[in-house]
Design a protein around this nucleic acid. Structure first.
Length: 471
RNA sequence: GGAGAGGUGGCCGAGUGGUCGAAGGCGCGCCCCUGCUAAGGGCGUAGGCGGGUAACUGUCUCGAGGGUUCGAAUCCCUUCCUCUCCGCCA
């Protein structure tokens, strides 16, 4: 959610920002309605002030008269007299009341539209984010590959044999059971079996442990079934509503519909919703591992085979909540990406950093860097029917300034809730640490041997009881 | 699922229709007093929105939403949440 004060001051900035992100939102309309609503409220407030003053002045008189009237010993003739007096005293505030109510109605007709437009305005991208329409306009910033891999050569040229896709490798070693997954849960479902499940757990645990033990993040277990407020607060709703599974509890008499989260970010960011944090406690660095649910609406037919695009997966997610300072936010962004890069390096996975263009940022981000791993089984096939490989997104690092925390009403100041001085809305960032089973794709494909066996990267071996190979 | 109790400021806790944004206590901050640690005294201590360069000021908020009333923390309705007991249960 953007700052309305900032909008009043400089609507052009937000209009341009929305255009660059390809978001259709009527900002001039909001500016107009905002002015209207403020004028109405100002008028209403002055009426209220008058009403209150009158009420304070006459309250005791009325109370006193009412007591006399209600007294059984009061003669009827006096009662009528008192009643007339009460009626007169009441007439002035009563008239104000009607006016106030009328203004209330006017405000109520405008307010929903204001809220709808307000929530729909995207955070303008930072000036250094390239302007573009779609993922095609994203820009590669850097690449990394282990010594034994030359990214300019084919898989065969690098390793001396043709690659099997992760689908073939999974079938070969019984790592995944797709048909039974589909039987249970429908398309895009799967069952990790045996070493598949072990490897999945190993990478998650390795990622979590690294963040906690080496990088100082606090591990959290958070709800994945949440209220709509949490989805709106974290800015996934209203825009992404069709991407989330809905648990329709109201239809069966429950209090609230619930939603399954598509990322642990929702739970982590929701923790301190509506709180005033102590500046001394910042930054908050938290990590969670959670199951993520995504409907993948609109992706029909895309990446249907394998583990790439699925409805349910597990993800280790990192977030940082800190003071409202651009330089600090930018620094955190780099640091968080650094954690991912070194993780991928220890796993010997070639990858690149991709600067997302304005059109690919999503509404809430001022900046977003995707990290993509090289997946030999993706991409076009050559003449012999062998895939030529391609990068596939495995991580996404977002920088949001105060856009998300404003919605969450998450603030900080000296001394926290009981402290003094002005409150400031926090800045937030989030970044994938590892999402599995998608990360298994490059892991299996890059570490396969000519005979189809798969080397388990050294850091994961302790999590697999010392096992070095899947064969 | 059944029965009951309750939601007030950072915390505890008063307040059942009128000057209550809310007594009192704790905590916290500043100051004073006091020659050791301790104790005492004074003042100050909610957030949002709007207006003002500012001092300041208007308004809203006592779980949430709605209603009654000239006036609601206080009355009515709805709802959410928490706690206790029973049942069930990973």
């Amino acid at each position: 959610m953007i700052d309305l004060k900032a909008l009043r001051k400089n609507p052009e900035r937000f209009i341009t920002g929305a255009e660059q992100k390809g978001v259709d939102v009527d900002i001039p309309r909001l500016v107009e309605l905002d002015a209207q609503i403020r004028a109405l409220k100002a008028e209403q407030e002055s009426l209220r002030a008058e009403q209150k003053a009158l009420s304070k002045k006459s309250g005791f008189f009325i109370g006193d008269l009412m007591k006399k009237i209600n007294n059984p010993t009061c003669p009827e003739s006096r009662k009528a007299e008192y009643q007339a007096e009460v009626k007169e005293i009441k007439s002035a505030p009563a008239a104000l009341k009607a006016q106030i109510q009328q203004l209330d109605e006017q405000i109520a007709t405008i307010e929903p539209e204001v809220t709808t437009i307000h929530l729909g305005i995207p955070q303008p991208a930072d000036a250094d984010v390239p302007v573009g329409k779609s993922a095609d306009d994203n820009i590669e910033r850097s690449t990394w590959a282990p010594d034994w891999w030359d990214k300019n050569k084919s898989f065969q040229a690098n390793k001396g044999f043709k690659p099997r896709t992760h689908i073939e490798l999974c079938a070969m070693h019984n790592l995944v059971d797709y048909p039974r997954g589909v039987k249970i849960a429908g398309s895009r479902s799967y069952i990790l079996t045996g070493d598949g499940m072990r490897l999945h757990q190993a990478i998650l645990r390795y990622a979590l442990d690294t963040m906690v033990n080496q990088n100082g993040f606090k591990p959290m277990s958070v709800p994945v079934l949440v209220r709509e407020e949490a989805m709106i607060g974290t800015a996934f709703f209203p825009g992404g509503k069709d991407q989330a599974y809905e648990v329709n509890e109201t239809a069966r008499g429950g209090g609230h519909d619930m939603y399954l989260t598509g990322t642990g970010e929702v739970g982590l960011m929701g923790i301190h919703q509506d709180e005033i944090l102590d500046e001394a406690d910042l930054p908050l660095k938290m990590v969670t591992v959670s199951t993520c649910f995504r409907r993948e609406a609109g992706a029909a037919g895309k990446d249907t085979a394998g583990l790439y695009r699925i409805h349910q997966f597990d993800k280790v997610e990192q977030v940082i909540i800190d003071v409202a300072d651009e330089a600090t936010s930018r620094k955190h962004h780099q640091t968080m990406m650094g954690f991912v890069q070194s993780l991928l390096q220890t796993l010997q996975l070639p990858h690149r950093l991709l600067q997302c263009c304005t059109g690919d940022l999503g509404t809430k981000n001022a900046d977003m860097i995707d990290i993509e791993c090289w997946m030999p089984g993706r991409g076009d096939e050559d003449d012999s029917g062998t895939p030529t490989g391609d990068y596939g997104e495995t991580h996404s690092a977002s920088r949001l300034y105060d856009y998300q925390c404003r919605r969450l009403n998450m603030r900080y100041r000296q001394g926290g809730d009981a402290g003094k001085g002005p409150t400031t809305i926090c800045h937030s960032l989030n970044n994938t640490v590892a999402a599995s089973p998608r990360i298994l794709i490059p892991l299996l494909e890059m570490h396969q041997n000519a005979d189809g066996s798969i080397n388990i990267p050294v850091p994961l071996q302790p999590y697999m009881n010392g096992q070095e190979k899947i064969s």
